[in-house]
Every structure is written in structure tokens, then in C-alpha cells.
Amino acid sequence: MAVENAKVLIIVNNWGIEETELTRPLRDLKAAGAAVTLAAATLDPCETVSHDRYEGETLTPDALLSDVNAGDYDLLVVPGGTCNVDRIRVNEDAIAIAQEFAHEGKPIAAICHGAWLLVNAGLIAGKTAAPCRYIRADIENAGGHYVDEQLHIDDANGWRLITSRKPADLDYFVDAIKKTLA
């Protein structure tokens, strides 16, 4: 598959999303030719923040979490933002989407707090991940291994996990997504 033939799903809550962790993958993958769908809990505008504190850009979701099917996509992206992921990690639709991607052997890319969703979805056990340091204990308590790296790719358990720590790692994160899709 080539990036320009890929279908990427990005899932978020409708507020509290770390701006660049959403906009960089969204725009970079679209610019590379991928079909990217932004799915959210509701069809209300998605309000982003910078550093979990300052108002960011507002984007319009393409679909509801409840209406998307992992079978229609090649890769899942879970942006961070503390409030964003704190909400989607308990959203039954988001959990089911992540589980479906993993069970189908499809890659999941999670940055910063994004890996929190994978903890709640029961997918982190046996995986090594490089999320933000604030969820290290969550990763380890769920049976995963935490590493402090700009990018970590883990192919254990039959599916690829791409993780990065923070917005400063986005070049590595987006590049790894493109290489996985190519």
C-alpha cells in the first residue's frame, strides 16, 4: 500500500485535544495523499488546546465515533491532550475501535496521553510504549513497558503500536506513520 491509497482514522473527544498532536498528523497525512477521517464523540466542533491550557484551533469532525468501523481504515491515530484522552478512554465506542484495530492486526499510533485509551482497552499488556511520562505508571500497571524515547515502534501481539511522548516528537511520529502506511 502507498500513503496516497491509505485510509486513516483519527479519534478524539470534542474538546481538550492537544492542537498539534491532532493537526500535524491530520494535515501531513492528507498532504501525502491519505484519506483521513476525524471522528469524535459528537458532531460538535472539536476544540483544541495548546499545552492543555491555551485555546487552540477548532476543527469540524467528519464522523461520529459510534458510526466508524475499523474495517474501513488502515491505521488509527489517537492524539493526546489530557482532557481529550481522559474522556475517550472511557468512551465505549473509542475503546471498541481501538480493540477492533488491534484484533484485526492494524497499526495504532498514539502520542502523549493517547496511549491511555489503549490501557483502558486492555491492549497495552506485553507492549513497549513511549507516551508522555505522566502516564508511565498506568502503562506499567497495565502490563506494558514504558520507555522515554522520541519514538517507539512495537510489533508485539500481532499489531504495530507507534508511540511518541509530546509535540516536540511529532516529526518522528508522523514520519513513522507514513513509513508504516508505505
Rank of each mutant, 00 (worst) to 15 (best):
N141S: 12
A94F: 05
A94Y: 03
N157L: 06
E149S: 12
H152D: 00
E149Y: 01
W159Y: 14
I139D: 01
Y134E: 15
E92K: 14
V90Q: 08
L76K: 13
P167M: 09
D169N: 13
P167G: 13
A98T: 12
N91V: 02
Y146F: 09
N69E: 11
A137Q: 14
A130L: 06
D72A: 13
V147Y: 07
R133C: 06
N84G: 11
G81R: 01
A168Y: 02
R165K: 13
K127L: 06
D148K: 07
C83Q: 13
D175T: 15
A168P: 00
G122Y: 11
G126P: 13
G126F: 08
V147L: 10
D74Y: 06
A115R: 00
L151E: 00
H103C: 04
G114D: 02
W159D: 07
A168K: 13
N120M: 06
E140G: 09
D72G: 09
E104L: 15
L161M: 05
A176H: 10
N141I: 01
A96G: 07
H152M: 00
K127H: 08
T128C: 07
E100N: 10
E149F: 01
D86V: 00
H152F: 08
A125E: 13
I97A: 01
G105N: 11
I124L: 11
R160F: 03
L118W: 02
D86A: 10
L170C: 05
C112N: 10
N91F: 05
I139C: 04
L117Y: 13
I108F: 09
E149H: 07
E140D: 09
A110Y: 00
I162S: 07
D171C: 02
E92V: 12
D155S: 15
R165W: 01
K106I: 11
N69I: 05
Q150S: 15
H113C: 13
K127Y: 07
A96T: 15
I162W: 04
I111K: 04
I124N: 02
D169C: 11
V147P: 08
D169P: 06
D138I: 02
R89E: 14
R133I: 10
I97C: 01
N157M: 08
I135C: 10
A70N: 11
G122N: 12
V147F: 07
E104S: 12
I124G: 00
G80N: 12
R133H: 12
G105V: 05
D86R: 06
I95E: 03
I108S: 02
D86C: 01
S66N: 06
N141R: 09
N84Q: 13
A109H: 11
D72H: 14
D67R: 05
A142T: 09
N69V: 07
I111W: 03
Q99V: 06
W116C: 06
R136Q: 15
G71F: 05
A98M: 08
V78T: 06
V68I: 12
N84W: 10
A125H: 04
I108T: 04
H145Q: 13
H152A: 00
V68E: 12
P107Q: 05
A109D: 14
D138T: 04
A125F: 00
K127E: 09
V77C: 09
S66D: 12
N157A: 08
D169K: 03
I97K: 00
